[in-house]
Amino acid sequence: CHGAKPPPNPEFTLKPKKKKIIQQNEGVPATPCPPCPELVWRSCVGQHIGAERMMVCSDKSQFSCENLCGNPLPCGNHYCTKTCHAFENQLRGSEACEDCSLPCQQEREPACPHNCPQRCHPGDCPPCKVLIKRSCHCGAMVHVFDCIYYNTLTAKGQESVRSCGGPCHRKLPNCTHLCPETCHPGQCTNADKCCKKVTVRCKCQTLKKEWVCQDVQAAYHLTGCHPKDIPKTQFGIGLIPCNSDCKSKVQVVESELQLRKSRVTEVQEPDTEKLVRKRKKRRERVLESKETTKLQKIISRAKRLLLYVLIFVILVAATYCGYKGLLWLSDWMNEVDERRQRYSRMK
């Protein structure tokens, strides 16, 4: 593969050198050629760029560069993470790349927040059949859709599908009534055009009339008040001026209230006296119960004396028993010593 090196040209050398006689081995017929000693660059078994090594031409051994394989896996999304190895069916010691066991990380089309349930695979993901919940616009019902069906709809289609078809149950912002339209997205548009009837009263609530709700709202706007700030119980009260009949009725009502108050106070006065008497009696009973007699004092003192005597007797008995026990223990120890001495003499 590589011939012998030619001799150096003396014309291009700085110093004259003696010509060397190069003996070329002439091949003998029917004899093999000697191994090639030239150095060549040889790549690793994984054919990685920049991992070549200088090797003798006649050395046919393969080597691994110890880098990651990096070949694309059959899934087409990831790469082999094994160390440098020979390709399959390339050499005898070749091995196949690893199998991809990672979950699928592709983006679904149409866009979907759910991940693909399959493992990493080539091609497109299957359609998403996860059930998603979406409430209607008024919040009275909850719909359940397939993810692929709901996400393929347009914005208008999603709004129409989410509508429950019933009346909107949301409260209007400027009055106490509910929206009469069918379930719709966004805010209620006819908030200032409510056509329901409202009973309007004067301040004393004797006169009453029926107005349309939008007229009531207009009357509140004229007075400088916003209908939203008025409570539900006071809505429509005070919009009609009072008449002379209202004043006479108010006077009659006030007189009746005064009579009722006077009767109530008269009925309650004797009750208060009875309560005071009962309280006094209870206090006297408590004081009497607290006052102890002389006999009770003598009995309590006698009990204390008996308790002290009993404690003293117990202490005396305990000391006597302890003293007797010590004497018995000393006698027993003396007997044991005498027995030991006798036993030692007998030996």
Rank of each mutant, 00 (worst) to 15 (best):
C188N: 07
C225H: 10
G50Y: 05
R92A: 15
K203L: 11
C204G: 10
P34H: 08
F63W: 10
Q341Y: 02
T154V: 08
L307Y: 06
C97I: 14
Q341D: 04
G139Y: 00
Q234V: 00
T189H: 01
M54I: 11
D337V: 11
N9M: 07
P113Y: 01
P167Y: 00
G166Y: 02
C188A: 05
R42F: 02
L306T: 10
T81A: 13
S255F: 04
A30C: 11
R279H: 06
S163V: 00
K303P: 00
Q234I: 01
V264Y: 10
R342N: 11
R304M: 07
G76I: 06
S135F: 00
P241E: 12
C147P: 04
E288R: 14
H184T: 04
G76Y: 14
Y79E: 13
N89G: 11
D192W: 03
L153H: 02
P110T: 04
A317Q: 12
C36P: 03
F312L: 13
S248K: 15
K5C: 12
P122N: 07
V264Q: 12
H184M: 09
R345N: 13
R162H: 06
T31M: 11
Q105V: 01
E52A: 11
V144W: 05
R277T: 09
K193C: 08
V56G: 02
Q23M: 11
T233W: 01
T81N: 15
C36T: 09
E335V: 06
A86T: 07
K303D: 14
V264H: 08
Q214M: 11
N243I: 09
T293N: 14
A191H: 06
C188I: 07
Q118W: 04
C112P: 03
T319D: 05
R340P: 00
G50V: 04
T182W: 00
Y149S: 14
N9R: 14
N89W: 09
E107R: 09
H78S: 08
V56K: 10
C164F: 05
R283S: 09
V216W: 03
R285M: 08
C164W: 10
A140I: 02
P35Q: 05
P122A: 13
E11L: 08
L91W: 10
V142Y: 01
C1I: 10
G238M: 01
E95M: 14
P103W: 02
T272A: 14
H184S: 03
Q217P: 05
R134D: 07
E335H: 09
K209C: 01
A4K: 14
N243E: 14
G186T: 05
L39T: 15
H137M: 01
P110E: 09
P227N: 10
M54K: 15
R42Q: 06
H177F: 10
K197A: 04
Y149V: 09
F87K: 15
R108N: 13
T189V: 09
Q118P: 00
H184N: 05
P7S: 15
N67E: 14
V276Y: 05
S101E: 13
C116A: 04
C100K: 11
P180F: 09
I237H: 08
Q205C: 13
Y79H: 13
Q217H: 11
